[in-house]
Write a protein that binds this DNA or RNA. Structure first.
Lengths: 155, 155
DNA sequence: CAGTATCCAGCTAGATACTG
DNA sequence: CAGTATCTAGCTGGATACTG
């Protein structure tokens, strides 16, 4: 019955492994935040608007530094994250809503108005991504220096 | 001269955007750690061996909880991270070496012996991934609950 | 032992066109 | 305005075979 046991064993190991990874919480989280657009949406909805200059900062309600998360409409997000396609934006927003990281509110005007806002959970995740950004700012130039050095040495 | 300015503008925006992302330190970091195998290698080299049971814990020098990072040989890592292919393991290790996150030491025995060890930078990154794991452990069941709820409600 | 080299399937992101 | 639907090109990861 047993065909080449070598290959079979390897395949089995891989299958078990994938099963493990599929339920590993860390892995699931990393899969979420490694998505290009997730972090950017988190930033768009979580960062206070004054932080990003070159945007016409609205004078109204600009002085609560970190109170409630802002709500943004689909088109606002789309404009802020200039490079995203409609497909990816919708897809990502829906995934984040599904995971309870943000809320989607439809107001039945004509045409419809849809607004998005981070939940506490989403806000908490945003805090985590900020700490990631912190590491990047502190150490990424070291990494880049090493990389450049390595590339030169190997010539 | 201007062909359909609509499409051209979009494309330009996207190009600029990609350029921005390419140099963004946070993005670069996320691209690194979102790699399936990077985190696992970090764990393999950074976690103390006693933490993972079902492994024959070597009695020697097992009582420094977080002193020097352990060194492991290629085949050890390969065995520990059962699901990884040679290609991916080598590729990932080389990338991490290039970035100064670990060192690769070749001992010219016959056959050759190659050992890997985290640098301080790598250790620091490992700390970050542990905080990510922390978030996952604290909040991922919330996320999963939301997801399940959402899927039921939408039926 | 510790790789290198090559080929290929699967998935995903983006382009494009259409709509309540 | 805020999407949905469809098609496809490109990249990545895995299988397989070979080597100093």
């Amino acid at each position: 019955m047993a065909t080449t046991t070598k290959a079979a064993a390897r395949e089995q190991a891989r299958t078990e492994y994938n099963a493990f990874l599929a339920v590993c919480p860390s892995r699931q989280l990393l899969d979420r935040i490694s998505d290009k657009w997730v972090v950017l949406i988190l930033c768009a909805l979580g960062d206070d608007p004054a932080a990003r200059s070159s945007e016409p900062t609205p004078p109204t309600e600009a002085d609560q530094p970190r109170a409630a998360p802002r709500t943004m409409r689909y088109s606002e997000i789309s404009r802020l994250i200039a490079g995203v396609s409609q497909k990816m934006l919708t897809q990502t927003l829906r995934a984040l809503e599904r995971d309870g990281l943000l809320t989607r509110t439809v107001t039945p005007t004509v045409p419809v108005t849809v607004s998005y806002q981070l939940t506490n959970l989403g806000l908490s995740l945003h805090t985590l991504t900020r700490s990631i950004r912190g590491w990047a700012q502190d150490h990424m130039d070291d990494v880049l220096a090493h990389r450049a050095q390595h590339d030169v040495t190997a010539s």
